[in-house]
């Protein structure tokens, strides 16, 4: 690659990514979706490129989805997981990343339990970094595939009312969806018990509604989040039973939504806890479309980040900003 030809492009999150760039990614995914329906599911686009999937946290859907996406574009993809890697021998994430980077991959896809882990990699290695979920921070490809799914059903994101329900505080899926959906002009509502939905979320531009029925009312889209069973031990709610009593999406509650509502869930779901089987398996559920779109969306992200001069992406937020000194507080300090 010619020197200075480009800055490395990363997808660390959707916060700050422009609407134009989001649309390029979504359109690319739309165009690539067709590959997965072919007899021979492969394009030569990324032949000779190497993608490392560095998964430091358990994942089935996301890891497989990235792996298939890379293979369908003819990239060589390698999976590394925490167990059985040098991480389990006490190597730091930074050193693992430097070692992987020394083998000249074109992209590293990282899933890590710490918020900011993807950003740390982008700061220290010279290849594209794709965040596949970092702590509670962001899971941008999940949100992109959610938005792609919504767009397929609703055509336009702008003007839709999208309600996200569950453990908002600890959810990277919620954050990425909030950032992406707001950028594309949707109205976003969030709902869940106050312990899992701090009022500071309003500062992101969402509406907060603690009552599930009121939150679902008139929604075009309802996105249910997985509730982690561990949270009941941390007193965020008294029991899964009580959580389900107030926040399980049932057919009865769903009647409050718009007649053409669609239901999303990033999986894996807890049937009977955050979503009833009737809703999960019912006519409004688009969960399998989400999974199918996941492959196309990740193909699009790999393509747009790895291929030099790939069309469209202009936004500075996908190019990683260089490190600068901290800015001083505004004059007068602290307005």
């Amino acid at each position: 690659m010619a020197e200075g030809e480009r800055q490395r492009r990363h997808l660390l999150g959707l916060n700050g990514v422009s609407a134009a760039d989001l649309i390029v990614l979504l359109d690319t995914a739309e165009a690539l979706a067709e590959v997965s329906r072919r007899e021979v599911k492969k394009l030569p686009t990324l032949r000779g490129k190497t993608v490392i999937n560095l998964f430091m946290e358990n994942s089935t859907r996301t890891r497989i989805s990235f792996e298939i996406a890379a293979k369908r574009l003819s990239a060589d993809s390698i999976n590394v997981s925490a167990a059985g890697s040098s991480i389990s021998k006490g190597e730091t994430l930074a050193d693992t990343a430097r070692n992987l980077a020394a083998m000249s991959p074109d992209a590293i896809v990282i899933r890590h339990p710490s918020a900011g882990a993807a950003r740390l990699l982008a700061d220290i290695v010279d290849c594209s970094i794709i965040n596949a979920g970092d702590g509670w921070h962001e899971h941008p490809t999940q949100a992109l595939l959610d938005i792609l799914t919504i767009r397929q059903y609703k055509r336009e994101i702008a003007g839709l009312t999208v309600t996200i329900v569950g453990d908002i505080l600890h959810s990277r899926v919620a954050r990425s969806n909030v950032f992406g959906l707001l950028t594309l002009g949707a109205r976003v509502r969030v709902s869940g018990p106050p312990t899992l939905l701090p009022p500071e979320f309003a500062a992101l531009g969402v509406e907060i509604e603690y009552d599930l029925a009121a939150a679902v009312a008139d929604s075009d889209v309802v996105m249910m989040l997985r509730i982690q069973r561990e949270r009941q031990g941390e007193n965020f709610f008294p029991s899964l039973d009580e959580y389900a009593h107030y926040y399980c999406l049932t057919e009865e509650i769903l009647a409050e939504a718009k007649p053409d509502v669609i239901i999303l869930h990033p999986g894996p779901m807890n049937r009977g806890i955050e979503i009833s089987s009737g809703v999960a398996d019912g006519p409004y559920s688009v969960m399998m479309n989400q999974v199918a779109n996941g492959v196309a969306m990740r193909m699009a992200v790999l393509y747009q980040l790895i291929v030099p001069g790939a069309d469209g992406i202009r936004g500075s937020k996908l190019a990683h900003p260089p490190k600068k000194s901290l800015p001083r507080l505004d004059a007068g300090g602290a307005a």
Binding site: A115, R175, P198
Partner: peptide, 12 residues
């Protein structure tokens, strides 16, 4: 600090 920045960054 618990506040807007923590929410944005997904940090406890």
């Amino acid at each position: 600090n618990e506040g807007v920045t923590a929410i944005q960054l997904g940090l406890p």
